[in-house]
């Protein structure tokens, strides 16, 4: 099986970067809420333990995946990406057509602050620690799954890890600068792109895994992304209620 071409590597980087950035924004909202309400000590301790747990996950599953035969790995990875990507894609469509509320970081922040304020203040706060830990760990697991599945099946674990690392650092820097203005991040648009790209990869790897040779090889990935993107645009346009689409257009 050949390695990915340059366009394939770029697509891989963009997909992992966007997926990691979206998850990091969600994690950062929780950490900032915990830190600002209960002090940064418990928040950072929660983050540190979560990062250690994530590193352990990578250390266990990363090398294990490299021992699985490539065709089997691509079938498993393709199916996981397909299911995972379809969930993101569906949610983004539902949000675009107004059937699901958009992910509002401001509302999540306010809700968390209210919840945390109900517990008494102390230098070491178990509730704050757990909240920061769970926030970073659960969002981080999604990043780890994306990096390991996409990276290992494309033989580009380094590229995938670099993309995720770049996203983590960038979101952390932006988060420090804008602090509580994470709601300005166009999360639904990012989730839509990531969902479509994950499904494109899922379709591609399932085909490769069962022994199919796609016409155009890696270019099939681009074709899937464009076709799925176009079909999404048609679906969103035709399912959006008329008065809403007029308001959006104006």
């Amino acid at each position: 099986m050949s390695a990915l071409s340059t366009s394939g590597v770029i697509a891989l980087f963009v997909t992992v970067f966007l997926a990691s950035a979206v998850e990091m924004v969600e994690a950062l909202t929780i950490v900032v809420a915990v830190g600002a309400t209960k002090g940064w000590r418990s928040a950072f301790e929660g983050v540190a333990v979560a990062l250690l747990a994530l590193a352990a996950l990578v250390a266990v599953f990363g090398p294990a995946l490299s021992r699985i035969p490539m065709s089997s790995l691509r079938i498993v990875v393709g199916t996981v990406l397909l299911i995972f990507g379809m969930q993101w894609w569906r949610k983004a469509i539902l949000r675009s057509i107004g059937l699901k509320a958009k992910h509002d970081e401001d509302a999540i922040y306010a809700e968390m602050v209210e919840e945390l304020q109900q517990s008494p203040a102390s230098t070491r706060d178990a509730a704050a620690f757990m909240m920061a830990f769970k926030g970073v760990f659960l969002e981080g697991v999604e990043v780890v799954v994306t990096v390991i599945t996409l990276g290992s099946s494309a033989h580009r674990l380094g590229v995938a890890a670099t993309a995720a690392g770049t996203a983590v650092v960038l979101v952390a820097i932006v988060g420090l600068i804008v602090a509580r203005q994470l709601s300005n991040v166009p999360e639904n648009a990012m989730k839509m792109v990531v969902g479509i790209m994950m499904v494109a990869y899922g379709t591609f790897w399932i085909g490769e895994g069962i022994g199919l040779r796609w016409p155009g090889k890696d270019l099939a990935l681009l074709a899937f992304t464009l076709i799925y993107g176009f079909l999404t645009w048609v679906v969103v346009l035709s399912l959006t209620p008329r008065e809403r689409s007029v308001a959006v257009a104006s």
């Binding site: 899922g202 379709t203 799925y228 079909l231 679906v235």
Partner: peptide, 14 residues
């Protein structure tokens, strides 16, 4: 059929 089934499934779920 593969991409068609995928898109059809997501559309059906929506």
């Amino acid at each position: 059929l593969l991409p068609l089934m995928v898109f059809g499934g997501v559309l059906g779920s929506v």
